[in-house]
Write a protein that binds this DNA or RNA. Structure first.
Length: 563
RNA sequence: UGGGGGAUCGUUCAAUGGUAGGACAACGGACUCUGACUCCGUAUAUCCAGGUUCGAAUCCUGGUCUCCCAGCCA
């Protein structure tokens, strides 16, 4: 059972379900489904739907099916099916043996179509796609009936069979429901049920050359599976009368109800599968699992956890308002989870050499450093200390502003889990003026991290021993887009991509305990952020880390304000 | 323009005729061997105009804004 909070969530959909339970509408049964089309990788928006559907099923002791809504061979593939299966599983949900495919219902759906024809409720239309569009009318004008609308049942039956048999080329005929060309709801103006597509389907191969449309296939698939609450997004609200129409006309024994909620939008990213595909195909990102992508696989590679994503999906709630959730909330959920579970280690991203003049050459000490400041159960590791160290270049300033209380010439700081050191001199590159090395002294009395004379330091900084540290590459990931809503107006999203969304640091130094780091494992680099071992490019010989998310940074806010 | 939805702190979700509340963000403070975590505190909202009512975010009337629909996509 997946439940991040102790309190059960409540929302308008769960209210409907509780009403249905009270009135015994489905004999107390709750059955949902998550119905992705396998034409792209699932993203965080899908995660919202997954958590909703599986969450509801678990809460009401019902079931949730995983169903591939694969009614259009164009763009669908097994690669996507596998990605979907992997990601839903990874998120922590279980459909048991109920993995279904709309394509498995093709024969049943075809029989339903025949039935509709026999009832005089469907007909084969031989208008071109263009003509159908023209006949459909507009928002303000009613449509015109197709001249083929009154074909006899026998003729329709014959034509549909021949469509199925492959006698006609693409686009020459479609099967349409006979409803009402004057309906103010355009969805009801004799909608297309089947089209001819002589394309190989990734599962059914060439067995079919006619494929059912969403509106026809979806409601019947739900009915076949005994779905009680068919939860979908807002844009299908217009389709609900049609969803019901097929089920009513065919007098199916089980009639599910469709309920619509607002899809997730997240600031600083995009959720359109088409646009995401475009980023991948144009190589503007490094594949579907690029850590900057809002895909589940991208977030996994970035170091986000299923727990964090589930917690996020619970917190954002479920409603019918169009909204854009602040990315900061997702990041908060990630930090909240990682703060608890990530072992602390020290890593220096932009190394600045420090020489401790009064520390004996060749001497090495080891400090016992806990992996977590509050959870002692996480244990500790030994970190070597020697005369030459690296600290982060950010932790030294030659002319520090008032509120900077890290290292500067003449100032003393504490090395995390180590000694107090004082900077006596900054060595500069004569040409560039850049500080290339710090000469410091240490106070041997401060080994515990405290001074016996009670003096205090303003800052504690992280470090690694130059002799013992391991080289590593660190990839600094940030939000993909510079603007909160990259798809506004007709603007090209490409222009909003943030070129700084990935910065690769190739000369980082991490403490030696990281030699054993396992692929995908998560760490907090103390005072810097959360990082994970890249699951694709990292190896024992060449460590590669991805920045999952920065730590909250009060200092960054201060410097930001100064600007 | 016809039809279908939606409007509550900066953002998001609640309040189902009876004190407008939570989370994130922001700001201030405490604590701190992580400028982290944690803790405490502060400010900020009912789209507008009428009406019903002892009492309206909620009910009624009229407006305004906004999203979705004219794929042989889902």
């Amino acid at each position: 059972m997946v439940q991040t909070n102790s309190s059960l969530p409540s929302d308008f959909i769960r209210d409907i379900i509780e009403d249905d339970m009270k009135t015994n509408k489905y004999q107390g049964r709750v059955a949902t489904r998550f119905p992705p089309e396998p034409n792209g990788y699932p993203h965080i928006g899908h995660a919202k739907s997954i958590c909703l559907n599986f969450g509801i099923a678990a809460q009401y002791r019902g079931t949730c099916n995983l169903r591939m809504d694969d009614t259009d061979p164009t763009g669908e593939s097994m690669e996507y099916v596998n990605a979907i299966i992997r990601d839903v599983k990874w998120l922590g949900f279980d459909w048991e043996e109920r993995l279904y495919y709309a394509s498995d219902y093709y024969e049943k759906l075809y029989q339903y179509a025949l039935q509709l024809i026999k009832m005089g409720k469907a007909f084969v239309c031989s208008l071109s796609a263009d003509e159908i569009r023209q006949y459909r009318g507009t928002f303000t004008e009613p449509g015109k009936e197709s001249p083929y609308r009154n074909r006899t049942i026998e003729e329709n039956l014959d034509l549909l069979e021949r469509m199925r048999a492959g006698e006609f080329p693409d686009g020459t005929h479609v099967l349409r429901a006979k409803i009402d060309m004057a309906s103010p709801n355009i969805t009801m103006r004799d909608p297309v049920m089947y089209r001819i597509k002589k394309e190989t389907h990734y599962r059914t191969g060439d067995a079919w050359c006619i494929y059912p449309m969403y509106d026809f296939a979806h409601c019947l698939s739900d009915s076949i599976e005994g779905i009680t609450h068919s939860i979908c997004t807002l844009e299908f609200e217009n389709n609900r009368p049609l969803y019901d129409w097929f089920l009513d006309e065919l007098e199916v024994e089980h009639q599910p109800q469709q309920i619509e909620f607002a899809r997730l939008n997240l600031s600083y990213t995009i959720m359109s599968k088409r646009k995401l595909l475009e980023l991948v195909e144009r190589k503007l990102v490094n594949g579907w699992d690029d850590p900057r992508m809002p895909t589940i696989s991208g977030m996994r590679r970035r170091g986000y956890t299923p727990e964090a994503i589930r917690s996020f999906c619970e917190r954002i709630g479920v409603a019918k308002n169009d909204s854009i959730v602040d990315m900061a909330l997702l990041e908060h959920c990630v930090r909240e989870d990682l703060n608890e579970r990530a072992p602390r280690v020290m890593a220096v991203l932009r190394p600045l050499r420090v020489v401790i003049d009064n520390y004996p050459e060749g001497r090495v000490e080891e400090f016992e450093c806990p992996y977590h400041p509050k959870n002692t159960a996480m244990g500790s590791r030994k970190v070597p200390f020697s005369r030459e160290l690296y600290i982060d270049a950010d932790d030294f300033m030659e002319n520090p502003p008032k509120k900077f209380y890290r290292l500067s010439t003449g100032r003393e700081v504490r090395l995390r889990y180590g000694y107090f050191i004082k900077c006596v001199r900054a060595v500069k590159n004569e040409r560039t003026g850049e500080v290339v090395e710090l000469r410091c002294t240490y106070d041997p009395e401060t080994r515990s991290g405290f001074a016996p004379d009670g003096r205090k330091v303003d800052a504690t900084i992280h470090w690694v021993s130059a002799l013992h540290a391991l080289p590593a590459q660190v990839r600094l990931y940030d939000r993909l887009f510079r603007v909160a809503d990259p798809l506004t107006k007709e603007s090209d999203m490409t222009l909003s991509l943030d070129p700084k969304s990935l910065e690769i640091l190739r000369s980082c130094q991490v403490e030696p305990s990281m030699a054993a780091a396992i692929s995908g494992s998560l760490y907090q680099f103390e005072r810097v952020g959360y990082f994970c071992v890249d699951s694709v490019d990292s190896s024992d010989k060449a460590l590669v880390f991805n920045r999952t998310v920065t730590l909250r940074d009060a200092w960054a806010k201060i410097t930001e304000k100064g600007k």
